[in-house]
Design a binder for these strands. Structure first.
Lengths: 191, 191
DNA sequence: TCGCACATGTAACGTGTTACATGATTCA
DNA sequence: TGAATCATGTAACACGTTACATGTGCGA
C-alpha cells in the first residue's frame, strides 16, 4: 500500500495492460515486442524490475500459477490502489510540457481511457489536448516567421532548419486533426 | 583522439551545433531551452557532462575565454575527428528501428545535413526515409486490419485502441508526406 | 538429442533528472 | 544592497540497456 518514488510511463503501460486479465511478465513483454504499443522496450531488464516496483508500491499483486506444471508463472493483477492510481493518471490535467515532449505518454493515456468507460471524460481529454496542440502550433508558427525573416535578409541560408521546423509543424497538425476527428466518437458532456 | 562508449543523440546535437561557431555550455543550453530543437533537455546535469565526455573522446576541444573579464567561459569547437564522427552519423544507413522508435533522432540528422553541403546525400537520406516510412505504414495498416476483424466479431470493443492506432498511422503519413515534399528541395543525384 | 519457445531473473554500466552549490557581473 | 542573469559544476538517484544466467517442456 505504501507509495514511494515516481510511477513512470512504463509502469502505467504495464498497469493498464493488467486491467484486462491477469498476465505474466512474459505475456506483457510479448505485447510490447509484437505490437506498436507505445514503443516501450520489451527487454527483461526493464519489465521484471518494473513489475517488482509496482508490487512493492502496492499497485499490483502477483501470484504464482502452478496450474500447468511448467516452471511457475507469476500472474499479476492490479490492486484497488493500483486502479485508483491509474484513474488519477488518466484524468490528470494535461500540462503544456506534455505536448512538447511527452506526446507518446498522452497517446498511451488515451488508449487506456477505455478503462474509465466514461465517454465524457475522454471527450474532455481530447478537447484539452486539441487546445494545447493549437497553442503549441501557434508557437511553432512564430518560430517559422522568425526563420522566414532571417531567410529574407540572407537568401543563402540552407533550407534544412526551415524544413525541420516544417516537419514539426505538420506532425502537430496531424495530431490536432486526429484529436478533433476522434472527439466525434465520444459524446459531448451535458453542461 | 581515443574513442570509447557510445555517442548519444544529445552528444551529436551538441557536436552539430558547434559546427557553426564555438560556443559555451551555457550558450548551448539556451538554444535547447528557447527553441524546439529536438526537445532535448537543457539541464546543466546533462549538458556539462556531455561536453566533458565529448572532449575526453576527442570529438570537441574546449578553450577558456578570458576576453571579457567575466568568470571564464569555456568555448568548445569540434576537432577533425569530431567532424568525421558527425559526417559518419549523418550518412549512416537508416535502419527500420530508427523509424519505429527514433524518429526524433532522424529529424536531428536531417537538420544537421546542412553541414554536409551535399544535396545529393540529403536527397538520398530523404528517399530512404520515405521508403522505411512506407514499409512501416504497411505494417500498421496490417495491424489495423486485424483490429477491424476483431471488431466485426465483437462490436462492443471500445474504439480507443483503434483510434490510438489511427493516431500512429496519421502521424507516420504526415512524416512520409513531409519526406516526399522535402525531397524537392534537393537535387536528384546523377546516376 | 538438439534446438527452440517458454519464463524469470540479475549485474554492470551509462545517462538523464533533480537539486544543490558557487561565484561574477549588471542593473535598479 | 539585493535581485536577476551569466556561467559552470557536482552528488544522489533512478531507470533502461546490454549481456548473461538459469531452467522447463515440446517437437523434429
Amino acid at each position: 500500500m505504501k507509495r514511494s518514488g515516481k510511477t513512470t510511463a512504463l509502469d502505467f503501460a504495464l498497469l493498464g495492460m493488467l486491467h484486462g486479465a491477469p498476465q505474466s511478465g512474459y505475456d506483457l513483454r510479448k505485447v510490447f515486442a509484437e505490437t506498436a504499443l507505445g514503443n516501450y522496450s520489451s527487454s527483461p531488464g526493464a519489465i521484471y524490475p518494473a513489475l517488482k516496483r509496482l508490487e512493492k508500491n502496492g499497485l499490483v499483486e502477483g501470484k504464482e500459477d502452478h496450474t500447468v506444471s511448467l516452471r511457475p508463472k507469476r500472474l499479476y493483477h492490479p490492486t484497488r490502489s493500483g486502479k485508483a492510481a491509474m484513474r488519477e493518471w488518466l484524468l490528470a490535467r494535461i500540462d503544456p510540457d506534455d505536448v512538447r515532449r511527452r506526446m507518446d505518454e498522452l497517446l498511451l493515456r488515451f488508449a487506456f481511457h477505455s478503462i474509465l468507460n466514461d465517454p465524457g471524460a475522454t471527450y474532455q481529454f481530447l478537447s484539452h489536448l486539441d487546445e494545447h496542440l493549437e497553442n503549441y502550433l501557434e508557437e511553432l508558427s512564430g518560430q517559422r516567421s522568425l526563420l522566414d525573416e532571417a531567410q529574407a535578409l540572407n537568401p543563402d541560408i540552407p533550407p534544412h532548419g526551415r524544413l525541420a521546423l516544417e516537419f514539426g509543424i505538420s506532425q502537430y497538425q496531424a495530431w490536432r486533426d486526429w484529436a478533433r476527428e476522434s472527439q466525434k466518437y465520444f459524446e459531448k458532456p451535458t453542461p
